[in-house]
Simulated assay, not measured.
Amino acid sequence: MFIKILTKTINGKVHYYASLVENKRVNGKVKQFVKANLGPVTEDQIPYLKAAYSQKKPRLVYDDVE
Protein backbone atom coordinates (compact mmCIF):
# COMPACT_ATOMS: atom_id res chain seq x y z
CA MET A 1 0.00 0.00 0.00
CA PHE A 2 1.09 3.54 -0.60
CA ILE A 3 -0.16 7.11 -0.48
CA LYS A 4 -1.25 8.61 -3.77
CA ILE A 5 -1.49 12.39 -4.01
CA LEU A 6 -3.99 13.84 -6.46
CA THR A 7 -3.74 17.48 -7.49
CA LYS A 8 -6.64 19.55 -8.72
CA THR A 9 -6.52 23.14 -9.91
CA ILE A 10 -9.64 25.10 -9.03
CA ASN A 11 -9.83 28.77 -10.02
CA GLY A 12 -6.04 28.88 -10.43
CA LYS A 13 -5.35 27.48 -6.95
CA VAL A 14 -3.80 24.02 -6.50
CA HIS A 15 -5.50 21.62 -4.05
CA TYR A 16 -3.99 18.32 -2.86
CA TYR A 17 -5.96 15.21 -1.91
CA ALA A 18 -4.52 12.01 -0.44
CA SER A 19 -5.67 8.42 -0.93
CA LEU A 20 -4.43 5.12 0.46
CA VAL A 21 -3.96 2.85 -2.58
CA GLU A 22 -3.20 -0.86 -2.96
CA ASN A 23 -1.85 -2.57 -6.09
CA LYS A 24 -3.39 -5.91 -7.07
CA ARG A 25 -2.83 -8.13 -10.08
CA VAL A 26 -6.12 -8.82 -11.91
CA ASN A 27 -6.14 -10.95 -15.07
CA GLY A 28 -2.38 -10.53 -15.46
CA LYS A 29 -2.47 -6.72 -15.16
CA VAL A 30 -1.71 -4.54 -12.15
CA LYS A 31 -4.62 -2.37 -11.03
CA GLN A 32 -4.82 0.19 -8.27
CA PHE A 33 -7.62 0.01 -5.73
CA VAL A 34 -8.39 2.90 -3.36
CA LYS A 35 -8.63 1.59 0.21
CA ALA A 36 -9.34 4.96 1.87
CA ASN A 37 -9.67 8.58 0.86
CA LEU A 38 -7.76 10.66 3.39
CA GLY A 39 -9.14 13.96 2.13
CA PRO A 40 -7.50 17.31 1.52
CA VAL A 41 -3.92 17.79 2.71
CA THR A 42 -1.49 20.68 2.68
CA GLU A 43 1.75 20.66 0.74
CA ASP A 44 3.68 20.44 4.04
CA GLN A 45 1.85 17.25 5.11
CA ILE A 46 2.64 15.25 1.94
CA PRO A 47 6.17 14.03 2.87
CA TYR A 48 5.00 12.94 6.34
CA LEU A 49 2.08 10.95 4.92
CA LYS A 50 4.31 9.23 2.39
CA ALA A 51 6.91 8.44 5.08
CA ALA A 52 4.26 6.92 7.34
CA TYR A 53 3.39 4.28 4.74
CA SER A 54 6.84 3.68 3.23
CA GLN A 55 8.67 0.40 3.79
CA LYS A 56 11.97 2.12 4.56
CA LYS A 57 11.28 4.81 7.11
CA PRO A 58 13.19 8.00 6.22
CA ARG A 59 14.30 10.46 8.87
CA LEU A 60 12.30 13.64 8.47
CA VAL A 61 13.94 15.46 11.40
CA TYR A 62 17.70 15.79 11.47
CA ASP A 63 19.85 16.51 14.51
CA ASP A 64 22.20 19.47 14.29
CA VAL A 65 25.70 18.00 14.52
CA GLU A 66 28.50 20.45 15.08
Rank of each mutant, 00 (worst) to 15 (best):
M1R: 07
M1A: 00
F2P: 06
F2H: 15
K4Q: 03
K4D: 04
L6P: 05
L6T: 14
T7V: 12
K8N: 03
K8E: 08
K8V: 05
T9N: 09
I10W: 10
I10A: 09
I10F: 10
N11I: 10
K13D: 13
V14Q: 15
H15M: 01
Y16M: 06
Y17H: 03
Y17Q: 08
S19T: 13
V21H: 10
V21L: 01
E22Y: 01
N23E: 08
N23K: 01
K24I: 06
K24E: 14
V26W: 04
V26P: 09
V26I: 12
V26G: 07
V26R: 09
N27V: 00
N27L: 08
N27W: 00
G28E: 09
G28A: 03
G28K: 05
G28D: 10
K29P: 01
K29C: 02
V30K: 12
K31M: 12
K31E: 14
Q32R: 07
F33T: 11
F33A: 05
F33I: 12
F33V: 12
V34D: 05
V34Y: 01
K35T: 09
A36R: 13
A36Y: 09
L38R: 05
L38P: 07
G39L: 04
G39Y: 01
G39T: 03
P40Y: 14
P40C: 12
T42M: 00
E43S: 15
E43R: 15
D44Y: 06
Q45W: 01
Q45K: 07
I46G: 00
I46K: 02
Y48H: 13
Y48F: 13
Y48T: 11
K50E: 15
A51W: 06
A52Q: 14
S54W: 08
S54M: 04
S54G: 08
Q55M: 14
K56V: 15
K56F: 11
K57T: 10
K57E: 13
K57I: 05
P58H: 04
R59L: 14
R59I: 12
L60I: 02
V61Q: 11
V61H: 13
Y62R: 05
D64N: 08
D64F: 04
D64G: 08
D64E: 13
